[in-house]
Structure formats: structure tokens, C-alpha cells
């Protein structure tokens, strides 16, 4: 095996999967260097979860090859399984067991030495803020608690490669930020993370590299900064009472797009505070009366519109 292969935690070539006539993965290539965070970004139905299922040995691919932690997923699935941890989109905790029992179950299945199990379980409960809930059955847990326990269970076996399939879908903003911090802490320990998400912000916050998946194909790939350059920035939408004011504003703010029916003007060039201030100052200077103002930040839709030419 060559040195470059060892340094790649995940390497997939021309991965294909179809269910009947429905093509879910239409030949995707993935390269994730060891110790980095890779985000697969895409809308529902793009094939993100299927990609995770194939790479985590849950389902076989129809075509192509994939190696995880240096082992082919089709030829040595058990070697792959021994190196990975998976936190799926749907809660993978045992609802009839307590938090501590769930962690112990994982420890037993990883054949951990009985002497280290207690310490490991106590550590994880502490780290994921589950000490108080440790002896309650997980059926009583909130969504955020279940997700934390889920991730803690994934970590019991000290995996080198961790798959997180939409880890924050359905979480409130506070739990989401807490989970992001957990992921950052994990990255600091040197593990490789393969993340899927529908949120541009999440990929931006966590990932070293992002691939955009749409209709089973990777339509763009790069660092967050590279991708953002491809995406049209946000815009500011101004609305007016009076067509004359709209005319004046359109003249003052060159390059903006007018919507005469709505008496509105979309001003491109970003939607951050500095841009907002500049636009408002310009309107002030010309004495133009604005009736309303809206801010449109770039989101996943914009990214996809840009990447797929609007065919969605």
C-alpha cells in the first residue's frame, strides 16, 4: 500500500448505487485526508445518507470502490467496522436501556477490558453532560440528550474515522452549537470526520473541505472559502411606497434588480452590516424614502442554484 493511500482516511472512486430505477449515487469520488473534516452538503434526497451507508459498510455499492481507514469496504468490512464510528440521522440508542447501560453495551461489543469500562463510561457521561440522566431510560431523553448519547456511544470504541449523518437535524440552535463544539473537540484529537448536512453554515463552521451533492453527483468541491466565491452573495431588498422613489433608488444603486409589481429593489453585493450601512447612507444622501427593508443571506438554495444552473 502506498503512502498516499495511508494518509487518506476515506478514498472512494466512481461510487454507484441505485434502488431499482432510482439512481441514488451516480458515480461519486471522495477523498478525505486523515485528521480532517469533510462535509457532504446537499438537500434531502441528494444521496448523502446512502453515501454514508456505503462507506460505513451498511449497504454494498453497485459499482466503484471505496476504502476507509485503508481497508476496502467490500473486501474487508470487519476491518473497516473496527476503525469507524457512525452516528446516523435516526437515533441509534436503545430506548429501553439507560444512558449508562447504552454506553456499557457499546463497551461490551467493543470487547473492552472490564477494568477500563467504568472509567470510559464515566468519562463520556461527564463529557456529554449526561451524568444526571445516566440512570434514566433513554425513552425519557430530549432530542438533544439522545443525540449527545448517540455521539458518546459512537466514541466508546475510539474510532479513527467518524461518520456523522446530519448530526444536528432537528436540534434547537443551542444544542446545535453545543454539538459543533463537541465535533471541534474531537477533531483536536486527530480523528477524521465525515459529516453530512443540509446546512451551509454547519459545513462552513466545521469542515475543511465541502462537497456539494445533488441528484447523486458531486457538483462542486472545495474549501468553504473556495465554494463561497462561487456562490452569489446575499442581497438587500428595499420596498417603496411610490414608483418615483423606486426609480430614484434604482438610479442611485446601479446594478440592482427592480421588481416593479412589488415596488421593490434587490440590491446585490452582500448583506453584511457594512454593506447595509453603505446602502442606507447612499439612500439618505439622495433623500430617498424607503418603506421597508429585508435582508437575504446566501443559503444552500443559492449554492445549488449557482452550481446546477437552477435545475432543481
Amino acid at each position: 500500500m502506498t503512502g498516499s493511500t495511508v494518509a487518506r482516511a476515506i478514498a472512494a472512486r466512481d461510487l454507484r448505487k441505485a434502488y431499482g430505477d432510482t439512481v441514488v449515487l451516480d458515480g461519486i469520488d471522495i477523498d478525505v485526508p486523515a485528521g480532517s473534516v469533510f462535509a457532504l452538503l446537499g438537500p434531502n434526497g441528494a444521496g448523502k445518507t446512502t453515501a454514508v451507508h456505503v462507506l460505513s459498510t451498511l449497504i454494498p455499492a453497485d459499482g466503484g470502490t471505496a476504502a476507509v481507514a485503508g481497508h476496502d469496504v467490500a473486501i474487508e468490512p470487519d476491518a473497516v467496522r473496527a476503525a469507524i464510528g457512525v452516528t446516523g440521522q435516526f437515533s441509534a440508542v436503545d430506548g429501553l436501556l439507560t444512558g449508562a447501560e447504552n454506553l456499557r453495551l457499546m463497551a461490551d461489543l467493543h470487547h473492552l477490558d472490564r477494568a477500563v469500562v467504568d472509567g470510559r463510561v464515566a468519562d463520556l457521561l461527564e463529557r456529554f453532560d449526561l451524568v444526571d440522566a445516566a440512570t434514566q431510560t433513554t425513552a425519557t431523553y430530549s432530542g438533544g440528550m439522545r443525540r449527545r448519547l448517540d455521539l458518546a456511544m459512537t466514541l466508546v470504541g475510539d474510532p479513527r474515522v467518524i461518520f456523522l449523518d446530519e448530526p444536528t437535524t432537528g436540534l434547537d440552535p443551542r444544542s446545535r452549537r453545543a454539538l459543533w463544539q463537541q465535533v471541534r473537540d474531537l477533531v483536536a484529537t486527530g480523528v477524521t470526520i465525515f459529516l453530512t448536512t443540509q446546512y451551509l453554515e454547519e459545513a462552513d463552521q466545521l469542515a475543511d473541505r465541502i462537497a456539494l451533492l445533488d441528484g447523486g453527483r458531486i457538483v462542486a468541491e472545495g474549501t468553504p472559502a473556495e465554494l463561497k466565491r462561487l456562490v452569489p452573495g446575499g442581497h438587500i431588498r428595499l420596498t417603496f411606497d411610490d414608483p418615483a422613489q423606486l426609480d430614484a433608488a434604482a438610479l442611485a444603486l446601479a446594478g440592482s434588480e427592480r421588481d416593479d409589481d412589488a415596488l421593490a429593489l434587490d440590491v446585490p453585493g452582500g448583506s453584511d452590516i457594512a454593506r447595509l450601512r453603505a446602502v442606507l447612507e447612499r439612500l439618505d444622501r439622495d433623500g430617498i424614502a424607503v418603506e421597508g427593508l429585508g435582508i437575504h443571506s446566501p443559503d444552500l438554495d443559492d449554492v445549488f442554484l449557482a452550481m446546477t444552473g437552477g435545475h432543481r
Partner: peptide, 13 residues
């Protein structure tokens, strides 16, 4: 139907 069965399937057990 439980997610934990999928988890078992991704473990070297």
C-alpha cells in the same frame, strides 16, 4: 425498526 440495529451492523461484532 430501531436505529440501534443499524449501529450494530456498522460494528465489528
Amino acid at each position: 425498526t430501531e436505529g440501534i440495529i443499524a449501529r450494530f451492523r456498522t460494528m465489528a461484532i
